[in-house]
Design a protein around this nucleic acid. Structure first.
Lengths: 129, 129
DNA sequence: TACCACATACGAAAGTTTTCGTTGACCGTA
DNA sequence: TACGGTCAACGAAAACTTTCGTATGTGGTA
């Protein structure tokens, strides 16, 4: 209680969070190297972003080593749900079902994906009834 | 071809697009009044945003009347798919199925919603096979 | 010890988004 | 015709995001 929810991450912040979720707690150097594959901004840019994210409370850091170790404060799934909730409110009139249907119709999901989704529907109806 | 895709709308722009989709072609006054229910920025703010959106190509306008009439250039569903595609890339590792599963598990969709989604899955598998 | 590689901190610039005050034009009406 | 209400245009400020140059400190090593 009392803690304000973390703000919606910006694009650049989300890219960093993706690395932290995949790698676990990481230094700026490690995050920057991972981003370098698809990004071409400088090291201090990544550093600055991660400092800002610390101020915002999006990540925490362990300063006990010379190279600080950063961790995402919220888990990947919680953040994904937050982003989905935002998008549902802003673009889908508050209807999660509309979003799901639109995502399904727009994506060529594989047969395995469809099976997995169907299984999830089954489970939802079981636990609901 | 050759037309650049319209850029991802910002939050304030999306709020305006929602009004245009619901009301159809509208004047700034009409959009602003509709937004006033949930927003409290001034009239000229809405005007300026819609002028910028015109420059960006997000909306078009008919200037034949004194009060210009604006229309969304892209349909609601196309924009929704664009936003979903962005989010899938930025937060779901490029996997639409992950987004759908997360959206389902996070939302308490009604029984009717689940049935509708199931029907859509049926249709997708029919047309695919 | 002197040096080098690498780390954080800081500030500022550039870009984008959101906000609104002011101005001048147009329209209907008293 | 003069007035009051409404409109678009414009510029600029404020807030936020992304970028990086520079300064400074620290630790290992020759």
């Amino acid at each position: 209680m009392g803690d304000k929810p973390t703000p919606r991450p910006t694009d650049a912040e989300l890219a960093i969070l993706n690395v932290l979720w995949e790698r676990g707690p990481s230094t700026v150097r490690e995050v920057h190297d991972a981003l370098s594959a698809t990004h071409d901004s400088g090291y201090t840019t990544t550093l600055k972003l991660m400092q800002i994210m610390t101020d915002k409370g999006i990540v925490t850091r362990d300063e006990s080593q010379r190279a600080h170790v950063y961790s995402s404060r919220e888990g990947e799934q919680k953040t994904q749900r937050q982003l989905l909730g935002d998008l549902i409110d802003r673009a889908f009139g508050g209807s999660p079902a509309k979003l799901v249907m639109q995502a399904l119709s727009a994506s060529r999901a594989s047969a395995e994906d469809l099976t997995a989704i169907r299984r999830m529907l089954d489970e939802m109806e079981e636990t609901k009834a």
